[in-house]
Design a protein around this nucleic acid. Sequence first.
DNA 1: AGCGGCCCTG
DNA 2: CAGGGCCGCT
Length: 582
Amino acid sequence: MEGERSPAPREKGRDSPFARSPGPSSSFADPDWFWDEDIQAKRARVETIVQGMCFSPHTPALVPGKARARDDSCCPGKARERKRKQSLPMQQGPLKPGPAGDHGSRKGGPRVREQLHQLKQQLRHLQKHILRAAELRDTAQNPGGSETDKGPLRAQQRKGYRRRPWAPDSDHYQGSRGDHSEEENHRASEAEHQSEEPRFLPCGAQALLEILRKELTGAVSQAVDSVLQKVLLDPPGHLTRLGRSFQGLVPEGRSEPSPPERGACKDLFPLATLPRRAQPQPGVLVQNFSLAKSLDPPRYPVSLRMIPTPYQGPPANCPLTAPSPIQENQTLRQLLGHRPSGHWSSSLPQDSTPQSHRSSESGLRPWGAVRLRPSVPSQQQYALPFASPHLERLPVLPSVKLEQGGLQAVADVLPFPSVHISEGLNPGHLKKAKLMFFFTRYPSSNLLKTYFPDVQFNRCITSQMIKWFSNFREFYYIQMEKFARQATTDGVTNPKMLVVLRDSELFRALNMHYNKGNDFEVPDCFLEVASLTLQEFFRAVSAGKDSDPSWKKPIYKIISKLDSDIPDIFKSSSHPQELFQN
DNA sequence: AGCGGCCCTG
DNA sequence: CAGGGCCGCT
């Protein structure tokens, strides 16, 4: 089970030389991680046992190695050490340091471990009982039939049918609706387990089963809750810190790459982690470019890409700008797992086979959905993979349901560490501000106040934050000017050729600045604004307006009208801290 | 005068 | 990224 903490393939991205620098915060190369894994393994086994108990005493799930082997085989190499991003170096020494990453206390550990151990023993014991009961009943009612049942039964169990081997007429029962679809049968058999099952059991076994269920439900959910509590109280980076590959480097509308930067990029980003389409291929670039030149601009696919024409007004607001009111505990889940998977996932080898999916996100470890981010190939910028529907698809075991409740409870009471009003600005605030820049380039001080509720604003703080955005803009405009000039020297004539895409070099530069570590998926609206800015600069430069000392002013004016709404999730004071500060 | 923004510099 | 000078606006 070691591997199930995170989707493996993205890990590689973390090996980028940016991601790590030697530093003091090594609290995560700790033994607790392995301990955690141990707990998970135990927990998974308990779950397996419970399933075996509920569905079939003959399920081979008791063989300790089985589940483990299966999981290992579907998630190879995931057990490698997780790396955490270093905290941002912050030059604001006297200011209040960010919340310490490690909440340290893991007192619950040994207790939970012991609990699980006892639970395991208990389960074995109980299972023996029920096995015996079932056998007794089987031999009593169907002296010869049990042998013939076994073969096909196991096969069907493997296929997902949950049959009750102790029900003598189960075959006929199933057969009587043989023309139902597989799904229906499956659903029906699930329902049986919920309601009808006891009908087929002798009284003793039925009572035993009831007791067993209660016991297991209580014990398992208790154990799960304490584990979850511990897990959720962990520094969030522990949970969400996943490797992520960087994206493309191809500048749009440029006939050739700029050699030094491209060389650097090749060195810095492992090519293996790049989506194939994004790998630098100058030859292809030249081709594309000449193609672009030979076609009518509007037909050039890149420039067509939903780029509003200048002066058309603000771009449509970002998809998430109105993401419907976000519930509190939903927010927690998002925070814990927000890291948008984005298009990187889609470039992964087709790993999301039903099997690997099942084993990683439902099955044995329902909390996997929270703890790790399954590679959901989604182009939706803000798909929230951990909204409740996800959880509701989980198995209908009572323990799971309770666990869901437990999670809910934990989520409800979990305090945000950064709720405390801070007098100064910390690296988390800076990071958050940078991400907010993707949505707003010219935030008012009022806006800042509403989006930094955990900051005690005063004149100094306000101007510092305003200054931040001023600096952000500066970098932004410098890049824009640089690339616009480059485009002119590259012979671009039509500004609409200039579109900032996620795999363009300009985007890479911006992303590196505002989203170092690539923790956040840049919203499309930013790409549109960036494209517009680039085009405006290009227009001005190619028209020779840059001889005017204040030639940028009109551009600033245009861009200042293109701010988008900021997603509500940014109002959560814990957003960047929870996500990135570790 | 106060403020926000840009520019330049370190 | 912060400090400081400068400018324009209110």
